[in-house]
Amino acid sequence: MTAKPLGFSACESPGKVHEGKAKVVRTYVNRRDDKGEPLVTDVELSLEGCQGELRMVARGGAPFAGCVAKKSNASSVSVKMQSGRTRDGHLATRLVAIDECVRDPDPSDSRSFEAFRACTPVMTDEVAVGFRCEVAPTDEAKAACPWLAR
């Protein structure tokens, strides 16, 4: 039996797949080949169903790049995420598919990221004077989207 890193012991095992729904915010073809076909494409997603706002930017090479570039902005898509290790050994959930577009996450990719926030108004004397956003996944968000609990 191999020893597990401390930070990983309480989390799920690598390879577990989660499915969810998202909206395409936008796609951007970053590089094209000589024929103009997408080589690298960034897709920005807004994940639905998690409490708060969850924004994800994923960069992918061919054939994912060409497939995802055809997705229109604001379209609803199904997403698959899989737990795996990053290049520094930490556990992360990585996007592996958007509908029929399969993505092979590159551990050396430093562009892809996700940002969570759950905002509530800041009230003073019953008047909203600002807002406060939790940027670490809340318990409600973890319950709705278990892959955030890591």
């Binding site: 940002a115 926030r117 800041v122 004077v129 807002f131 956003c133 940027v135 670490a136």
Partner: peptide, 17 residues
């Protein structure tokens, strides 16, 4: 994106006027 503060865990961002 990927914002971090070395040695610290990021919790919240609050803004008010």
């Amino acid at each position: 994106a990927n914002f971090q503060i070395a040695g610290w865990d990021l919790k919240y961002l609050e803004a008010r006027s």
